[in-house]
Design a protein around this nucleic acid. Sequence first.
DNA 1: TTGACATGTGACTGAATAGTCACCTATTCT
DNA 2: AGAATAGGTGACTATTCAGTCACATGTCAA
Lengths: 107, 107
Amino acid sequence: MTDDDDLVFKALADPTRRHLLDRLFERDGLTLTELESDLAMTRFGVMKHLRVLEDAGLVATRRQGREKLHFLSPVPIRLIHDRWISKYAEHRVAALADLKHELEETA
Amino acid sequence: MTDDDDLVFKALADPTRRHLLDRLFERDGLTLTELESDLAMTRFGVMKHLRVLEDAGLVATRRQGREKLHFLSPVPIRLIHDRWISKYAEHRVAALADLKHELEETA
DNA sequence: TTGACATGTGACTGAATAGTCACCTATTCT
DNA sequence: AGAATAGGTGACTATTCAGTCACATGTCAA
């Protein structure tokens, strides 16, 4: 009972990994050390998490000298969306989500 | 290090639960027994999974006599999408995802 | 009301996962 | 060259979670 995008969902299941994606969403091309600075965890923990994200295709990397730059790769996220939201329903669901965003901002 | 939609991501992390969402995406309003028929697992296991999905807001339910009907609730999925795909990038990413869908169909 | 059906609860067990550590390699700067 | 910096590996432990079971409640139909 394992499907193909298991890695993606497992990767997203951890709050630390979601936080890493948030940081990359805000600003792309961060290094391991930059990403680590933010977290109450050893470098090794962060490295492990980044590895999981990379294996899932949620993060792409590029080596530059002794540094490794990390980039958010959003396509797998969109594929999750498309799995349970039909093109037909998309408009309505997006409107509801927008409403929810607005309500949270005013709160 | 726990954020607010932890329940949603944890819920999606399990392949059995994703399969249940797939079934409800295909046809809404199924009962526990109907959902169970499909799975190599006891009724209790399926019930636990449905409970997790319901707590996460991914599945809504309605009692009807002695049956409990289950409905897919797609808004949390859209919120995941919006978290890492900006309105600005959405078009481009959606196009890439569509391309990927087509490639998989021809394969 | 009796029996069958549909769903529900709390406790238990085996497997998977997060985080750490000791130790290692490659690159840059002086 | 030597020291500092950035990243990497494999093994270990504590916690978490999936699945099961004995038992229980509510509903329908004859």
